[in-house]
C-alpha cells in the first residue's frame, strides 16, 4: 500500500460512468458484471443498462476472457498447412475486484514467464482492465484479508473507488491514463474523498482476522507439512469433481486436443481448461499416474497456491476470493487448511 504517496485522483459521476461505458461500446467489447439466469456473471454487455449495480461474487472469474475454457491454437488442413491461431479483440473489462486483479497478476506472470504465451498475452495487450476497489468483505466465504488481496498495487489499468453518488479513480499506467482521459474526462478529485474511502475500508477490514499467521513463510510451512494428516482427512470428503479448479481465478493448467472436422478435410488443435484434481491428470502414456491418491492431489493443489507458485510470484497464488469454498459441496476450504497447517487453528 502506497497510500502516503501523493497520487492524482479524478472523479466521475455514476451517470457519467454509464455514458462513458456506452461510449466505450462504440470502440470496444465491454465485459462487466451482468445478470444471467438469476445470477450475476461477468459477460459482454450491449449497453451500460445491462450492468449490475450490486456486486456479488461470480461463479467463474474474469480469467475466462483471457484464458478461455476452450481456445483454438492451431488450424490445419488435410494437406498439412498449419496456422497458429492467436485471437484477441479490443475489450474493456469493467468492474473486476481486487481479488481478481491480484489473480490476474499471477496469471499474467505465469503466461509471460520464460515462454511468452501469445494467445493469453495478446488478449491482455488488447484489453483495458478497470477495477473497482472493495470497501468491505463481500461475503462470509471470501478470505481476501487473509492473503492481503483486498489491496491492489498493479494488475489493472484503472482503479475505481465507489463513493456512492460518484466514482473517484486513479490510473495505474500509461494505457489507463490515455483511456481515462478519453472516456472519463480528467476532472480532478481531492485526496479527501480517497482518504475517507480508505479510512472506511481499513476500519471494515480491521474487524477481520487479518492475514494468515506466518503469511510470508507459507512456502516453507507447506514444504514441511507434506506428511500432515490433513491431506488424508480432506481426501475422505473430496469428490475429486474439479469444481474448485474450474472456478479458481489462478488455475491455468490445460489439456490439448486435436479435433478433425467431420469432413476430415480440416482440423483444429484446441486447448481446454484441465484440472489437477481429476484422477487422470498426471497420467503418462502407459496409463501410470504420478498423483493417483486424492490426498496427493489436494496436497499438490494447495502447495501450488501457497508454496510452489508463491515462491515464483511472491504472493500467494490463492487470492482468497472464496469461489472454491462456495463451489465445494464437501466444504473443503483453503482458508481452513492453511489455518490448520500453520497451527493457527485446530480442526473443529
Amino acid at each position: 500500500m502506497n497510500k502516503t504517496i501523493n497520487r492524482p485522483f479524478f472523479q466521475i459521476t455514476k451517470d457519467g460512468m454509464l455514458a462513458a461505458i456506452d461510449k466505450m461500446l462504440q470502440d470496444y467489447s465491454v465485459a462487466a458484471l451482468t445478470e444471467k439466469n438469476k445470477n450475476v456473471v461477468f459477460d459482454f454487455v450491449k449497453s451500460s443498462a445491462e450492468i449490475s449495480n450490486v456486486y456479488k461474487p461470480t461463479i467463474l472469474s474474469p480469467k475466462k476472457f483471457f484464458f478461455p475454457q476452450e481456445e483454438v491454437i492451431l488450424e490445419y488442413t488435410a494437406e498439412g498447412k498449419v496456422t497458429a491461431i492467436i485471437e484477441s479483440k479490443p475489450m474493456v473489462l469493467f468492474g473486476i475486484r481486487p481479488c481478481d486483479i491480484n489473480a490476474k497478476k499471477v496469471m499474467d506472470e505465469a503466461f509471460a514467464e520464460s515462454n511468452g504465451d501469445a494467445n493469453y498475452l495478446s488478449k491482455i495487450e488488447n484489453s483495458v482492465i478497470i477495477g473497482i476497489d472493495c470497501k468491505q468483505v463481500c461475503d462470509e466465504d471470501s478470505f481476501c484479508y487473509r492473503v492481503n488481496s483486498q489491496e491492489v498495487t498493479t494488475g489493472c489499468d484503472i482503479l475505481l473507488y465507489d463513493l456512492g453518488e460518484k466514482y473517484i479513480f486513479e490510473y495505474k499506467n500509461e494505457k489507463g491514463r490515455e483511456f481515462a482521459i478519453k472516456y472519463f474526462g480528467s476532472q480532478g478529485s481531492d485526496h479527501g474523498a480517497y482518504d475517507k474511502f480508505l479510512k472506511e475500508k481499513e476500519s471494515n477490514f480491521g474487524k477481520t482476522e487479518g492475514p494468515f499467521k506466518d503469511l510470508e513463510y507459507l512456502p516453507g510451512v507447506f514444504e514441511h507439512t507434506k506428511d500432515h494428516p490433513i491431506w488424508e482427512e480432506e481426501a475422505k470428503r473430496c469428490l475429486s469433481c474439479g469444481s474448485c479448479i474450474m472456478v479458481c481465478p489462478t488455475c491455468y493448467c490445460f489439456d490439448v486436443a486435436d479435433e478433425l472436422a467431420l469432413n476430415l478435410k480440416e482440423g483444429q488443435r484446441l486447448r481446454r481448461w484441465d484440472a489437477c484434481m481429476l484422477s487422470d491428470f498426471a497420467n503418462v502414456a502407459t496409463g501410470e499416474s504420478f498423483r493417483k491418491e486424492v490426498s496427493n492431489r489436494i496436497r499438490h493443489r494447495m502447495n501450488r497456491k501457497f508454496n510452489f507458485l508463491m515462491r515464483k510470484h511472491h504472493q500467494p497464488a490463492c487470492v482468497g476470493c472464496g469461489r472454491c469454498v462456495r463451489a465445494c459441496l464437501a466444504d473443503i476450504s483453503p482458508k481452513e487448511i492453511v489455518e490448520i497447517i500453520t497451527g493457527e487453528k485446530e480442526r473443529e
Binding site: 467463474l60 469428490l239 474439479g242 469444481s243 474450474m246 459441496l329
Partner: peptide
C-alpha cells in the same frame, strides 16, 4: 472421465444443491 460438475461450473449454473435439490453430478 470427469464429472458433470465440470461442465456445470463452466456454464456458471448455480449449484442446484443451493436450491435444495440433490444432484448426482459430482460422481
Amino acid at each position: 472421465t470427469y464429472p458433470v460438475c465440470i461442465e456445470c461450473k463452466k456454464k456458471e449454473n448455480i449449484c442446484v444443491y443451493e436450491k435444495g435439490i440433490h444432484c448426482l453430478g459430482p460422481v
